[in-house]
Amino acid sequence: MKEMTAREVESLLMKKAPLNIIDVRGVDEVAEGKIPGALNIPLGLLEFRMHELDKSKEYIIVCRSGARSGRATQFLSERGYQVTNMVGGMIAWNGEVA
């Protein structure tokens, strides 16, 4: 499984790199703050909403601690998506939140 640290993601955002971030936390968790520009698809809905994702794009998957995003990354990877898990999740995130 491909992994990236929160610091690496923040560095890419600061360089204005075009990132596709999927936050798999619940709606209530995301309401407390998410990485700017991240799309919220709760883990429990991922199977039903993965058609919204483009297999030609790369996605960074985020959750609170990295466990749910790890499961989501594995799930999507097995179905042909290009995905990277942000290890440490939002607990490790020190960047801006929306």
Rank of each mutant, 00 (worst) to 15 (best):
T5I: 13
T5E: 05
T5P: 02
A6F: 14
A6L: 12
A6M: 11
R7E: 14
E8G: 01
V9D: 00
S11P: 01
S11N: 04
S11I: 08
L12A: 15
L12W: 13
L12V: 06
L12S: 08
L12K: 15
L13H: 03
L13E: 04
M14V: 10
M14Q: 11
K15M: 12
K15N: 08
A17L: 07
P18F: 11
P18G: 00
L19R: 01
L19M: 13
N20Y: 14
N20I: 11
I21W: 13
I22P: 02
D23C: 12
G26D: 14
G26N: 12
V27W: 09
V27C: 02
D28G: 05
E29F: 13
V30F: 14
A31C: 10
E32H: 10
G33L: 12
K34V: 11
I35Y: 08
P36I: 12
A38Q: 10
L39G: 01
L39E: 10
L39W: 14
I41E: 07
I41T: 10
P42S: 10
P42V: 12
L43Q: 04
L43P: 04
G44Y: 13
G44P: 05
L46M: 12
E47G: 15
H51R: 13
E52W: 15
E52G: 07
E52C: 10
K55S: 09
S56M: 06
S56P: 00
S56V: 10
K57Y: 03
E58Y: 08
E58R: 11
Y59K: 02
I61G: 04
I61E: 03
I61V: 15
V62K: 04
V62A: 06
C63Y: 09
S65A: 14
G66V: 12
A67W: 06
R68I: 13
R68G: 05
S69V: 13
R71N: 04
R71S: 05
A72G: 09
A72R: 07
A72K: 08
A72T: 12
T73Q: 04
T73M: 07
Q74L: 10
Q74N: 03
Q74V: 09
F75V: 09
F75Y: 14
S77N: 06
E78G: 04
E78T: 06
G80F: 15
Q82N: 01
V83F: 07
T84V: 15
T84F: 03
T84K: 01
N85I: 05
M86N: 00
M86P: 00
V87R: 00
V87W: 03
G88K: 03
M90T: 00
M90N: 01
M90Y: 02
A92P: 00
W93Y: 08
W93L: 02
N94K: 08
G95D: 00
G95Q: 01
V97N: 03
V97Y: 06
V97E: 07
A98N: 09
